[in-house]
Computed example of a mutant assay.
Amino acid sequence: MEKNELRDRLAAGRLTRRQFARAAAAAGVGLVTLPLLARHGAADTGQIEYYTWATYEDPNLHKAFTAKYGHEPNHSTFGEEEEALQKMRSGYHPDVTHPCSYSVPRWYEAGIIKPIDTSRLSHYGDIFPELKTIKGTTKDGKALFVPFDWGNSSVLYRTDLVDSNTDSWMLLFDEKYKGRLATYDSVDGAVSSAALVLGFKNIGTLDDGQLAKVRDLMIKQKPLLRYYWTDQTSVEQGLASGELVAAYAWNASVVALKKQGVPVAYMNPKEGILTWVCGMALVKDAPGDEQAAYDFIDAMIDPQSGQYLIDNDGYGHSNRKSFDLVKPERLAELGLRDPVALFKQGVFFEETPTAFKEKYISMFEAVKAGL
């Protein structure tokens, strides 16, 4: 798919942000950038550059910044975090960037981001406390990033076609639905879901005995799957047509399918729902206006920005006051009626140490290859 076509489809509402990023990567676009205004020096009031996931530069997400400074920030976008890290390691210096919690430790150790003075953020006190203490996102009591958006990985299923295991990850391992299930072609997603079924919560540090049990369960799952998916669009199409009855999926697909009138439900599994959290980070030695960078972060965590994010994309926002601005029936539709309950039951994605990750990858590839 050509770069312009990707953008046209995004503008027409036929692609979510993360689908856009994945399709761009598949098309070989790599770093996706929009035309930037001339880069100004640090002395120019309000001039900053924001480096983020594709389309999170949406002006509706930082209206307070634009109102204060009278212009948009410059921006560039990335398709995935490793790409972003390497770009910045090579000398690119934006002012604000957008990592997810599990990447924060690595980015900090690489010297890319710096601690944030949260006292300079007027909305920081309204952020859900559960999101401020995720492992690896603080250093010596100081925040390394400010939570902004969060979402889930769980089971999305057809309510008219499924009548068992509707409260459990076990649905993706149910022989009753052989050939009509799908899971994410990712070691993180596949291992995590199997580990939760087995009752393991230490997903990032499974010992050899636990990993062997995960492997056995995944071997049993493989012949039940219609496919391992790499593009969430294929999940939505499969569920819409009835080819699939259930699949590992993200929040945005709930929004997309319900807009089409497809009878689906997004599970809050009894074993725990997987939760990811991404946020704003300050880049070390950034050239722009530091106060403007803080004002930009504050605008992103404004409850009005959160209302837009929730309504438009179906993802959660870090500011608890955002949820008061969204209609209760809309929150119920999105499965976001009780964020605190989701956090308590949720299992947050954390960085997997390299030694463990290599074992996971080797095992997953062997399972897919039938070895």
Rank of each mutant, 00 (worst) to 15 (best):
D149H: 09
L196E: 08
I134R: 04
N165F: 00
S192G: 01
G189Q: 04
L181Q: 03
P147W: 06
V187G: 08
A194D: 10
G136S: 12
K176N: 15
W150Y: 10
V146N: 11
D140W: 06
R180V: 03
S164M: 07
S153K: 06
S186E: 14
W150N: 08
L156R: 04
V146M: 08
S168M: 13
G136K: 12
D163R: 12
L196W: 00
K132Y: 02
K178Y: 02
G125A: 14
I127L: 15
N152D: 01
S164N: 14
G151Y: 07
K139I: 13
T159Y: 05
I127V: 15
T137F: 07
A194S: 14
Y157S: 01
D174F: 13
K176Y: 05
D167M: 00
G189T: 03
L131C: 05
S193L: 05
T183V: 09
S164L: 12
T166A: 02
S168L: 13
F145S: 13
G141W: 09
L172A: 07
V146L: 08
K178Q: 14
K142D: 12
R158L: 06
G199S: 12
Y184Q: 04
A182R: 04
V197R: 11
D167W: 00
D185N: 15
W150Q: 08
K176I: 09
G141K: 02
K142Q: 15
G189R: 08
K132D: 03
T138P: 04
L181C: 01
T137S: 10
L144V: 11
S168P: 12
T137I: 06
D140K: 13
S193T: 12
D163S: 15
D140T: 11
D126M: 06
